[in-house]
Design a protein around this nucleic acid. Sequence first.
DNA 1: AATTGATATGATATATTGTATCATTAGAAG
DNA 2: CTTCTAATGATACAATATATCATATCAATT
Lengths: 158, 158
Amino acid sequence: MTMNSVLENIKQAEHNCKEHGVRLTSKRKQVLSGLLQADKALSAYELVDQCKDESGKTMPAMSVYRILDFLAEEHLVHKLDSNNKYVACSHITCSHGHEVTQFLICEKCQRVDEINIDPSMIEQLQSNVKDAGYHLISPQLEMKCLCETCFTTFPHPN
Amino acid sequence: MTMNSVLENIKQAEHNCKEHGVRLTSKRKQVLSGLLQADKALSAYELVDQCKDESGKTMPAMSVYRILDFLAEEHLVHKLDSNNKYVACSHITCSHGHEVTQFLICEKCQRVDEINIDPSMIEQLQSNVKDAGYHLISPQLEMKCLCETCFTTFPHPN
DNA sequence: AATTGATATGATATATTGTATCATTAGAAG
DNA sequence: CTTCTAATGATACAATATATCATATCAATT
Ligand SMILES: [Zn+2]
Ligand SMILES: [Zn+2]
Ligand SMILES: [Zn+2]
Ligand SMILES: [Zn+2]
């Protein structure tokens, strides 16, 4: 992501936080900015390294985890359970809600696309869940994939 | 799951393994049986404890991980990325394939239901992935839920 | 400006999950 | 029985995550 885009995202994130009555502190900006620049999913500890590289100062892992929790609550980043990594939300500067999020995750290069789901599909998923006697609490679909580049670059089975 | 059902599942699992030219050893049976009896998702280390309780002998964590890998390859257990736990396949004694598996996971009690997806839904998911320029390599949908019991028992937001 | 209370961050220890590697054992095949 | 392979054990360690208490920062009030 270009530096301009990063700044634009940060600015919008700051605005969103203000509206929610919470603060996007400089550390939180630093972490979010790191994720935006990386343009892929990073682990908490990779983010520690990235912050070190950017600023020279070490950010405690504990702080990174806390900040990632905060950013996730604000829907500014998402945690990917598939690989225990974190990715910046693709929809910070647009007005998407987050009823159901779907991620396509490249297993090789950690590139992630956050795509939209057809509302009828969401409905069907919800109704499947309900029919099975469950109550959906955190709908997030993660699909383990290869991106086009990795698919053509690396050998693969099938 | 009743002891009879457990034995029936083990028997079928043994048959399946024989067909694939691999061995369902006694340790592997012990782990699979532990998961079947638990009737919910367990972590690898919870399984270590369970094996200890059942047999008196300690099974090394390393072995449990290896055995879980084996069982997963045979589609006898599934790994849930959502909570880093493992669950016995619900379809050992029936003839389901595993093109796309969908799990409803209770966040409170770790109860899991492995349900079927409508083929048209699978198709649509696949086409979404393709449209985004990705290649699906391991389709497994995990939905974080509350089961009916936990939903009515515990307080919840919304 | 100083006081105070709430929020954020740092420091440290520890828990949990998972892998690498080499040694040993058990099974199948000849 | 021997020999080869697959399975398991033992040990060390890496990677991910949380618990807890101390300190710093910020903003409101005096
Ligand atoms: Zn998002
Ligand atoms: Zn890729
Ligand atoms: Zn299954
Ligand atoms: Zn439950």
